[in-house]
Nucleic acid binder design. Structure first.
Lengths: 148, 148
DNA sequence: CGGTTTTCATACTAAGTCAATAGGAATTAA
DNA sequence: TTAATTCCTATTGACTTAGTATGAAAACCG
């Protein structure tokens, strides 16, 4: 499966915000430093998540981002759809609709695959990922710390 | 889901061969005429299916293609993999392996999605599509016939 | 043989997509 | 007013993809 870098970075950012926004907002610079993603790139991704009402932004100095809802109410389906409609969306082809074989393929294959992906991602939430992250970092896989 | 035209055309070709090879071989020209796919394009796709031992080719005049096995023994998984490794393959990202969040995403999301796609397509065969095609064409959706 | 039909191999091109950068406007705290 | 921040939109360069082009190799047929 091919997943765009935008979706990957968007998801990582959201989990980062989820983890670090307990005490206040999280800025693009914060995420960039922690997750090694270009700040300029994030500036392009996060507004999309805001428009989809997944995060809320505070402008100006001391500004940043927080989630609009508890993490367990944010499904990965809506996140992925907000960033890239093609991942979970229907398989579509230009003009082969007239072909009966293409129709059979849709019914037996493509439609079922996309239906599954939609319902699966509907049932995974940001909380699940954050919890999994906690377990990973607790079990000796701690994020490397660089002391000066 | 984004599926390349190559995979789509390859699958359509295979179903066409399955349907029309009962009496003999099927040529690129046959498929091209029936399915409205450029013959030159097919000449690029079918050899790949041959290398994957899904179809057998007969060279020269009176040559063409047939399936190597009964249609119920050809899974869509192997067909799709033969034409495009990325569709069912693992989600892979450049250098974000070090990120624990990326790891959590893999475990909770990407790995499960690709596992499902692999096992689902493993259990759909060419026969299933051909049968579905038969039902579609029997129920009033007959392929248009052009009489001269 | 020689001509025709076919598959096979490889190169090419034009269009589209994607990742990432760039520059600057708008907003707000201090 | 200054610094920190989000926001908006354009652009670039690299890569991918769809489809075409050219011709070689193989095999049937008369």
């Amino acid at each position: 499966m091919k997943i765009s870098s935008k979706v990957e970075c968007g998801l990582i950012s959201l989990v980062d915000i989820c983890i670090y926004s307990k005490t206040g907002v999280v800025t693009v610079i914060n995420i960039s430093a922690r997750q090694h993603i270009s700040a300029k790139y994030l500036e392009q991704i996060l507004p999309q998540l805001r428009q989809a009402q997944i995060i809320r932004s505070v402008k100006g100095a001391k500004g940043g981002y927080t989630l609009t809802r508890p993490a367990e109410k944010i499904t990965l389906r809506e996140v992925i759809n907000a960033l890239d409609r093609t991942v979970l969306g229907e398989v579509s082809f230009d003009n082969k609709e007239d072909s009966l074989i293409a129709g059979a393929l849709s019914e037996c294959l493509w439609d079922r695959m996309t239906e599954y992906l939609q319902s699966f991602t509907e049932n995974v939430t940001l909380r699940d990922i954050a919890d999994r992250y906690d377990k990973l970092s607790a079990s000796g896989n701690a994020e490397p710390m660089y002391y000066i």
